Amino acid sequence: MNIGPLSLPIGPIIFFLSVAIAIFAGWLIDKGRRDTDPVIFAAVIIGLIVARISFVLQYLPSYQDSLFKILDFRDTGFEPLPGVVAGLITIGLVLARRKSIRRPSLLATVVGLAVWGVASAATGLMTPSSTVPDNSLFNAAGTSQPLAPHDGKPHVINLWATWCAPCQAEMPILANAQAGYPGLDLVFVNQGERPNTVDSFMANLNLHVNNSLFDPSLSVAKATGTKAFPTTLFYDASGRLLESHLGRFSEATLEATISHLYPGITTRRAK
């Protein structure tokens, strides 16, 4: 789940808000001395590093062509469990030597973890229970076709525009995914632009995609409550919405999402 017109994923927002609450709780318990701050900061930094390394190792083929992509954590590719374990071990090692701050540090940690867990669970329950819109749109050939192919496959709908920088960055990744996941119907729905604008964009990137549809009135965005682009909607084979993602995908985070939502779908890598 994501939030806001600036394509800010809600997961990191919840995480850093939880860290801030933990720091504040430590400050209150420690009567304003802030002795717990370095402990929490150290645990957060080490936890994030371990969580990132764990994610990268899991999806290493998606990162092997560029060291920069490993360092570019804007794709929010983190494995939570190893990070939490590493953070708790860090806190334990520090507190083993500093008995004076054990109580405020431990209580602050419990508060932060509780806020993070409850908020994450709550946002997971907020995923709207809806189905794919019953829209028909014009394709590149100028003929009308339904938004959902109804061919028995799960389908992924990407709402995008050529002027959107995150859309530009993820389009080659999504084009590869369309070729690499034959068991999925990946549909590109351009929002509010002319076909010649889209054609020029695709030609400049040397990309060819199937299932490219045009939505000049933004009817799909309105029907799905989409407020910003790119938004990617994941549906099961019966048309039920499983998850929506606002913001750019990296190759690894898209692969992780597809693996999570469609465990039976296999990939043939397209490069």
Rank of each mutant, 00 (worst) to 15 (best):
L93Q: 09
K31N: 15
T231N: 01
E255R: 13
T109R: 08
V189N: 02
P12C: 15
V39G: 02
A179M: 11
A42P: 01
P263A: 04
I70H: 05
G83Q: 04
S100I: 09
G183I: 01
W160L: 06
I29W: 06
G112F: 07
P82G: 09
L17A: 14
L242E: 01
L246F: 05
I21K: 06
N135A: 12
D37T: 14
N206S: 12
N176Y: 02
P149V: 08
T109K: 08
V50I: 15
T162D: 08
V115G: 07
S62F: 11
F201N: 06
A114R: 04
A237M: 00
A175L: 00
P182R: 05
S244A: 11
N211A: 13
T162V: 10
L184Y: 04
E243W: 07
A148F: 08
L159M: 11
N176C: 00
F214K: 05
A122I: 12
A96T: 03
V84T: 13
L159E: 09
R240T: 09
K69R: 14
W116M: 14
A165R: 08
F214G: 08
F201C: 09
L205M: 15
Y262I: 12
G77A: 08
P230F: 01
D215R: 04
A252F: 03
R52S: 09
T231A: 05
N135S: 06
S100T: 13
S200Y: 00
F68P: 10
Q145C: 10
T162I: 10
V39T: 14
A175D: 03
T162G: 11
A86I: 11
A221N: 10
G124N: 15
F55L: 05
A179Y: 08
F188Q: 05
G117Q: 14
G180D: 03
G47H: 06
S250K: 00
L81Y: 06
C164M: 09
I173W: 02
G4C: 10
N135P: 00
A169E: 14
S66C: 07
F24V: 15
F201T: 12
S7W: 02
T226Q: 01
N135K: 10
W163S: 08
I173S: 13
R102F: 13
S120V: 07
A161I: 13
E193A: 11
G192D: 10
F78C: 03
Y262M: 07
